[in-house]
Nucleic acid binder design. Structure first.
Lengths: 205, 205
DNA sequence: CAACATACGGAACGTTGGTTCCGGTTGTCA
DNA sequence: TGACAACCGGAACCAACGTTCCGTATGTTG
């Protein structure tokens, strides 16, 4: 009997002795926001001083919150992927399997496109998003798998594909579109092509 | 009369006054090969010393051939894209429009996959492949456009797509597949989905 | 084979950028 | 409100990396 389950990975009862001071919390959030912006706009190789400046804090403050630049990456990634996972789970509640799946795919594409600069910047630097936040990532995959299974059962999509396929296809396509200088409309067109490819070759009976 | 033309900013007749010394030529090639390998394996941010070491030359030698790290990128990109352009042009000679297009798409995908690490590494660093070697890139786009036009005329593919769409789709999908840790088989499956998406929704009459 | 230009290697330089340190500031709690 | 701990800012430190420089080696030409 453990009494209190060891919540977090680092150390049992790692509940901080005390809550962060109010200004510290505010600064932490400011840094995260600023970092997301700056990394997206100028790549992850920007001097960290710029992030601090943008956040309106000194570098010292930044390092108090995130012991290293990498830790900052990690924190950002975690947030974003978690958002996506939540969205995927929400889609499962939709009654009709077909629009549930394809609606979410389009939403995922939009989201991925708008955050593309950030994701690109991150994995540019060798930050492996997938392994960095395995937990959120798995939630998203599970949700996507559920959406797929329902849609396949209803005869809406091929049954020889898995969640990973779809994720790779959508994310990759957004990346490719951007790389070719496509605008939002063109990107949406490409996603449409992907969706058509995902549907059953011969319509359900 | 200038007698000897002022070297060349690479204007017309850029034939160098003299051929490179034999060992210099060999070294130049070695550097290119080593750079492609190293950049692919460890990203473009590797110290340039590593490239030199791998090539078996000193940094000084490297800088003699490529005045800057960026110039080295450029040289590599140019080579690779040129290869692809040549392949695309070759595909035009195939008699049957359908296999000509889809065969090339698959070839492009294979090629893109095997060189993926390199391309990723390059555009990670903000090296815009497309603008860097506009010439080769345009040749490839033109060839792809030709393939598409023929295929569309034969009713094999949708007619609301252009060469850029296809390039973005294929390149992006390869990227996405790799990102999701897909193996070659999975990648090919994704490309298959793309191809299906590119075909006419309702088969030709 | 001699003489010269070309090419080579790698130590040294300057800059850039991540990280640390510490004197001053500010929230928080009694 | 006073005292203490947590927090802040930014100058300074240090390692990494691109680039330059120059003495030495080697292909080439006559």
């Amino acid at each position: 009997m453990v009494g209190e389950r060891a919540i977090e990975t680092d150390g049992p009862e790692s509940a901080p002795a005390r809550a962060m001071r109010a200004d510290a919390q505010k600064n932490r959030q400011r840094i995260l926001d600023a970092a997301a912006d700056v990394f997206a706009a100028r790549g992850v190789s920007v001097p960290i001083d710029l992030v601090a400046e943008r956040a309106g804090v000194g570098v010292g403050t930044l390092y108090r919150h995130f012991p290293t630049k990498e830790a900052l990456f990690e924190a950002i990634v975690e947030t974003k992927v978690d958002d996506l996972a939540r969205a995927a789970e929400a889609a499962i509640d939709e009654p009709d399997p077909d629009p549930a799946l394809f609606g979410f795919i389009r939403q995922l594409a939009r989201e991925a496109s708008s955050k593309q600069d950030l994701f690109d910047a991150l994995d540019s630097a060798g930050i492996d998003v997938k392994s960095r936040c395995a937990a959120s990532m798995e939630r998203m995959e599970a949700a996507m798998a559920a959406l797929l299974a329902r849609a396949a059962a209803a005869g809406a999509v091929r049954d020889d594909i898995d969640a990973n396929d779809v994720l790779g296809l959508v994310v990759g396509t957004c990346h490719g579109a951007r790389r070719m200088g496509a605008d939002d409309a063109a990107t949406e067109r490409l996603i449409g092509i992907c969706c058509q490819g995902l549907r059953r070759a011969d319509p359900a009976p």
